[in-house]
């Protein structure tokens, strides 16, 4: 076959002889069909008038590119940047965990240390550089089970407890600061002084007066009593006991003619309000009256 034979055939440039010869071949029919069929094909609709109008708008407005896909990509890129940006921003912020009245929460820190928060407490820490900087801030009370590693510091408004890996409890309430060590040892920084607290001891500061006590008598277990839904006290002024009661039961306590600085030793339930009240009141022969979310404590002989 001659060069570009098919192109010449389509252009009617073949000689009579060439054409009749071509028509006898097997392929001719398909070729004919392709050519006939393809001339009936249609390109996508295109409106010249509209395009011309658009062209004049573009011409004057000097909008160089009309590219919806690119525009979508640009929007997508901006959104992506914002999302990743805010992700890293939020991640770099301090993480905050809060518990309310009658609520406990357990959380695992990035190094798998475990923190259990008692009622009405709050801890704040930074997740991002936790491995290099194990530093957190505590408001309220929490029990720590610290994984071995770098220095672990609990900052509170009153004092600082530092450990290397142990189990300890920190309570930081108004006028009341207590660190109890259950395992290993804890260094407590309070009022410009550092105290090393060995296991089984408790560092207690009530109104800036420091008492270090051996807690093994009060509590045989390796964990603070509140983890077992009880609150244990050893020679603690009654007002702190009542405060703890308020937090555990979300109940207001009012006292009448009662000296709240008398010392209390004992354990109260954090589950049953009646039993807890009885354990507080019985030793002092205090009477109590329960109203909705309020409890009134009074001395028998003085009312009436």
């Amino acid at each position: 076959m001659q060069e570009n034979f098919l192109a010449r055939w389509l252009n009617n440039e073949l000689s009579q002889e060439e054409l009749s010869k071509f028509k006898e071949t097997n392929e001719y029919l398909t070729y004919k069909k392709i050519v006939d069929f393809s001339s009936k094909l249609e390109a996508p609709t295109y409106n010249t008038e509209e395009a011309l109008d658009q062209s004049k708008i573009n011409r004057n407005a000097k909008i160089i590119r009309l590219n919806p896909i690119r525009k979508k990509l640009q929007i997508a890129a901006v959104v992506l940047v914002l999302i990743t940006g805010s992700y890293f921003f939020i991640n770099s912020l301090d993480k905050n965990v809060i518990t309310g009245y009658a609520e406990n929460k357990t959380l695992t820190l990035p190094d798998s240390s475990i923190v259990t928060l008692n009622s009405v407490s709050e801890i704040t820490f930074n997740k991002n550089n936790w491995d290099t900087n194990r530093n957190l801030t505590l408001e309220g009370e929490a029990f720590f089970k610290v994984a071995k590693g770098k220095k672990f510091t609990v900052n509170t408004s009153q004092g600082i407890a530092t450990v290397l890996g142990t189990q300890f409890n920190v309570e930081n309430r108004t006028g009341f600061f207590e660190v109890t060590c259950y395992e290993g040892s804890v260094s407590v920084y309070f009022n410009g002084e550092t105290t090393i607290l060995p296991a089984g001891n408790s560092f207690l500061a009530i109104d800036n007066e420091v008492i270090i006590t051996d807690i093994s008598g009060v509590n045989d277990t390796q964990t603070p009593s509140w983890l077992l839904n009880e609150s244990s006290f050893k020679s603690i002024p009654l007002k702190y006991v009542l405060n703890e009661f308020e937090r555990q039961f979300d109940t207001k306590i009012e006292t009448k003619n009662i000296n709240t600085s008398i010392l209390f030793t004992g354990t109260i339930s954090n589950k049953n309000k009646e039993i807890a009240l009885k354990s507080i009141c019985a030793p002092y022969q205090i009477n109590y009256k329960i109203e909705k979310n309020k409890v009134l404590l009074y001395l028998e002989n003085q009312t009436k």
């Binding site: 060069e3 570009n4 034979f5 098919l6 192109a7 389509l10 392929e27 398909t30 070729y31 392709i34």
Partner: peptide, 20 residues
Amino acid sequence: IKAIEKRMHLALKTLREKID
């Protein structure tokens, strides 16, 4: 134009081969 004829020829040839 020669190049276009060539393309045309090849296009037809390939199309037929493909279709048949």
